[in-house]
């Protein structure tokens, strides 16, 4: 099913995480909102295959990669077009040109870096934008180098380079929350030293603000690192209890409330019998 929304509601890092974890194949289109000065909008397209990024571009005319090759001066537009026609239908253009000895592996890497890493990483700075993921869009062989990047790697690179975090401010874990690891053992990702330091505190006990104090880092910086650990699937935000339980609750004017709740004591729930559950389901079914 098509997924749509606004980046202000569901951010690009969250979206990438969803597409990767869901092993999605299709086309993600991001339409920037009209610029207040120029009233112009721009479309950005990112193609996914099995949750990994395979290509990116600003148009759907299947000429983006050819244009990049031509701009590098490695081949003329027409020459690439002619060679592209000789490629097998399922082979990515970049790989096809490499197989024909027209491009080297290094050149392909450079193309992929320009096409995907640089273009997509820049999108993390967008304050907002409308997005749509179309799982039925065809795979664009003419836009593909044959190289792939995991959404996690792109997210990590994009967020590390991000200067202005205002657009993601609401998404950051609260300074009062802790972090908890959601993986077995240590991360396989290449974390930087600060990320490793914060990772060491993913045991669900210490608030982000206290981690910052411990590491002598600004709270905002630790929040940003924590967000990176969250959207790359390494950790989860764990809200800590804001206040200790009081010794009693003033509930004298709510006689309907059962004493065990009103007392404020947290001793757990007494089990209910199978006949209770049977009767309850029977009773509820009469209301359906």
């Amino acid at each position: 099913m098509t997924v749509t929304g606004y980046l202000a509601d569901f951010s690009l890092p969250e979206l990438f995480q969803l597409l990767e974890q869901g092993n999605k194949t299709g086309l993600l289109t991001i339409c920037t909102l009209a610029d207040t000065k120029t009233a112009e909008r721009y479309n950005h397209h990112i193609w996914f295959s099995q949750g990994q990024i395979v290509a990116a571009g600003n148009t759907l005319d299947q000429r983006g990669l050819m244009g990049l090759i031509a701009r590098r001066g490695w081949m003329g537009d027409n020459a690439v077009s002619r060679l592209a026609q000789t490629c097998q239908i399922n082979t990515p253009l970049g790989l096809c040109l490499k197989n024909q000895g027209v491009l080297t592996a290094e050149q392909l890497k450079l193309l992929f870096y320009t096409q995907v890493m640089r273009q997509v990483c820049a999108l993390f700075a967008l304050p907002d934008g409308w997005f749509q993921f179309d799982p039925k869009a065809p795979t664009p062989r003419a836009e593909m180098t044959g190289l792939i990047a995991t959404a996690t790697d792109v997210t990590l690179a994009g967020l590390r380079a991000l200067k202005d975090w205002a657009a993601l401010d609401e998404k950051l874990p609260a300074p009062t929350s802790a972090l908890v690891s959601v993986i077995e053992g240590k991360p396989n990702l290449r974390l930087n030293p600060n990320e490793w330091q914060v990772w060491e505190f993913t045991n669900g006990t210490m608030a982000v603000a206290d981690v910052a104090k411990q590491l002598n880092l600004p709270v905002a910086k630790v929040q940003q690192i924590a967000f990176r650990l969250i959207v790359t699937g390494l950790a989860e935000e764990m809200p800590l209890m804001a206040a200790p339980p009081p010794s009693s609750l003033a509930l004298d004017d709510a006689p309907e409330l059962e004493p065990s709740i009103a007392s404020g004591k947290t001793a757990g729930a007494a089990p209910v019998s199978a006949s209770f559950l049977q009767n309850l389901v029977g009773f509820l079914k009469s209301k359906v």
């Binding site: 809200p239 209890m241 339980p245 729930a269 209910v272």
Partner: peptide
């Protein structure tokens, strides 16, 4: 939005 003791009481008592 804050998670206080009332949340804790409710979830601890819940089935």
């Amino acid at each position: 939005s804050r998670f206080d003791f009332m949340w804790d009481i409710l979830i601890q008592k819940a089935h």
